[in-house]
Amino acid sequence: MRTLSRRSEFLAANRGLRFPMPGFVLLVRPRGDGDDAPGIGFTVSKKVGNAVVRNRMKRRLRALARAALPESGIAGADHVLIGRPGGNAIAFAELAGHLDSALKRAAKKLAQ
């Protein structure tokens, strides 16, 4: 799994598919570069809360991605998880279910 680090990669992912969920928004965009490793990036804006709240949200999103993307992630695509306000109040297991649902929807949409 590769980590997105450049702004251009996040902007490119923003032009892809968008799957809003209660605690986050999943962006998925196939890269088309022949590399099958999924890419992952995280964004949590100041609208979510102060630094402590944002860092907690990023840690939760990283843990979700580590658990779900190796099995359910789309090969050769960049995935960006954008934290939403109130995401920290949702149970981790529920967030994991939302991420699995979003990844299945993304795979189905890209298969068409």
Rank of each mutant, 00 (worst) to 15 (best):
T3V: 11
R62C: 05
V48D: 08
V52E: 02
M21E: 15
G73R: 00
A75F: 02
A106Y: 00
N88E: 15
R54F: 02
N55G: 08
I74W: 01
A107R: 15
L81E: 07
V52D: 01
G76H: 05
N50P: 04
L99F: 02
A102H: 05
L81K: 04
R105Q: 15
G49E: 12
K58H: 09
K108M: 05
L95E: 04
R31N: 09
A65P: 00
F10V: 12
L11A: 14
I74D: 02
A111K: 12
V52K: 03
A51R: 08
R18V: 12
L4H: 02
A63F: 06
R84C: 07
D33I: 07
S8V: 13
L11W: 02
P38G: 01
K58D: 10
A102L: 07
M57L: 15
V53D: 08
D36A: 15
M57D: 05
L69S: 07
A93D: 15
S8Q: 14
G23W: 04
D33F: 02
A51V: 12
R84Y: 04
Q112A: 14
L17P: 01
N50M: 04
F19A: 10
A63E: 14
R105W: 01
A68E: 07
K104E: 10
N50S: 06
A111R: 10
R15G: 04
F42C: 13
A68Q: 08
R56Q: 13
M57C: 15
S101E: 13
L11P: 02
P20M: 11
K47M: 06
R59F: 07
D100A: 11
G87N: 12
A111C: 06
R6N: 03
A51F: 11
E9G: 05
G41Q: 11
G34M: 05
N88V: 11
F24W: 08
L61N: 07
S5V: 04
D100M: 02
L103I: 03
A12N: 10
A37M: 13
N88Q: 12
G41E: 11
P70D: 07
